[in-house]
Design a protein around this nucleic acid. Structure first.
Lengths: 192, 192, 192, 192
DNA sequence: CATGAATGAGCGTTCATTCAT
DNA sequence: GATGAATGAACGCTCATTCAT
């Protein structure tokens, strides 16, 4: 792995675990096993590194989700896979949780600064994947004819709420709970 | 207004606008028109002030929502009022937006520290208000028999997604958009 | 006891225990059971209070020593009483220790400021009491004909060294140790 | 001179002149001609710097005294050299005075904290040098058979008293005064 | 390319002092 | 006289960024 990627992986872990402001460059350098100055060879400054890290993480996640949903056929199964993969990425890699809630971004007066630099296409893509599935389900008469945009936002919103709940109440999210969430979403979506 | 409340209002505005780490005590003091030292007469330290501010904001919001939904009769209208009030609080007071997304809380490695001190009852209350409405609607056969917990999380999640969208894409949220969201939620909930 | 004396007693205890800079006006006010503002009715500022406290303490000490040495007849017994009383004041009132070592005074760039205001006569008096005793002993041929000024400084110096030793090494000073010190001083002073 | 030593020298001067609490890190940095942050590369915090400075100063002083007493032969001359060097270090370097009186240490409620960290061996060494000389003098029948521990404390105590006197009364200490003190001490010590 | 020693702006917090009651 | 709420100057320490090697 080249130095740039080592830095991104270290950033992902540390920004994810401790947030933007409580992560310092020195600890990223140490974790990535490079010199502090080296980071500034690949990234303009801390903010640039942060944004790059988010894009890197979101991209990885989208790819994983896409690969997962492609393995099944029906829209229902695809929705289940979408939710499942989303949760599992988080279960397996706590450090990534934060990036999917946009928390770090907002807790900053340079919202627009950050927003301008985060690749909007990647975020949109994450929604689009689910929206496409839902529209396919509606077309195939497998899902009720709900507004697909709204339904997408509600499902992604549900996932975010669940993550917030887990963090906030310090509970656990297990496979049983994931199944419970999936089943109810499918029930809401499905005709009959 | 006494000094303590002036400080809380200033904190609400600044923490809301700029987040925990980029808001400094001095600017809160200036905005509240009190001395920097005065803040420390009423709050133990910055974190204590932050947590107090969140509790203060969430409480205010819950009260406003409750008052609003009590004015109408049917569950459908109540859901609409809930969403509407939620959005309007934010439209009218951008500074409060952040607190409802828990963003500030998470962007910190002391998540549990903060979480422990935020009055969980207030957060739960916000969900409970909507859950009660939905269960009333189901009982009265006005709403479909969906899982009320999941449906609550999905609707609150939808609101959060919309707020994130507005912040992230720097768009506007107007009454037309709010109506669009409400109508679609009601359509999803309603029998027939 | 009037308020001024209550404040002086509280100051003596706290300045003695914690030193000038780590003692705050608020805690003195609390200990003296008066309002913080009240202190400023009787003393111009913190420094003035400190100096007044030192003078108060040194005066008390001189009086106690004088009373004690007057009770015995021979110079040897008087020297013993001087040393003994000095140590016992400290044993019985740890808080006073500091003032006799001038420590607090020196740890300040306003040495001269402080020095100018501490009643030099009181400090001189403390030495003079012992010097008079030694000169009496020499005159009465009880003591060797050493320089009385030097011998006085050496004995007071010995006491200070012992106090420093006790504080620094956190040991105890007991009656046996005091007897040991006295006996050796008398041996040094005495003819035969 | 490397940065660490430049910082120690600046600390020695400023802590010595103004005491622990009235010396601020910024002024040490300025005097040492380094950045404020640089100090924290070499010392954990202000207290650590202070303790390191004391140990540094005491060590230097011990070495200077040792070198000086070794140049002469008889115990009497060695005692004179000890006193002389002690005073001259202070005459030539006012800033060091304070450290030899332990003043700074005591003016703090964290006495034990500080005491624990100051190298006791260095302080003991300073006494031991003189005690060894006195015992040598006694053995060689040059000095009276006084208790060497007490005599050591009295002579070091005398030096401290003289220093305190100089600081307190803002007088001068000149070679004539030093000779006067030495002569009288030798007279007290000597047989015949 | 890579490093890490050096920097100094910036911030949370304390506390002596004031003054309206 | 007596009070204590209010103030803001001052200081220890952190950390993003630079630059000589």
């Amino acid at each position: 792995m080249d130095k740039k990627n080592k830095i991104l992986e270290a950033s992902l872990e540390l920004f994810g675990k401790k947030g933007y402001f409580e992560t310092d460059i020195e600890s990223i350098a140490k974790r990535a096993d490079v010199g502090k100055g080296t980071i500034y060879l690949y990234f303009k400054n801390k903010k640039d590194l942060f944004i790059s890290t988010i894009n890197y993480a979101l991209n990885n996640c989208n790819e994983e989700i896409l690969k997962s949903v492609e393995k099944v056929d029906t829209p229902s199964l695809k929705v289940e896979r979408y939710m499942e993969t989303f949760f599992n990425i988080m279960l397996g890699n706590v450090s990534k949780i934060k990036f999917f809630t946009m928390n770090n971004i907002n807790s900053n007066n340079q919202i627009s600064d950050f927003s301008k630099n985060i690749d909007k296409k990647i975020v949109i893509k994450r929604f689009q994947i689910l929206k496409d599935i839902i529209e396919e389900g509606i077309e195939k008469k497998e899902f009720k004819d709900f507004n697909s945009e709204i339904m997408t936002m509600m499902i992604v919103g549900l996932i975010h709420m669940e993550i917030s709940r887990v963090i906030f109440f310090e509970t656990q999210i297990d496979q049983k709970r994931i199944k419970y969430l999936k089943d109810n979403v499918i029930k809401i979506l499905s005709k009959e």
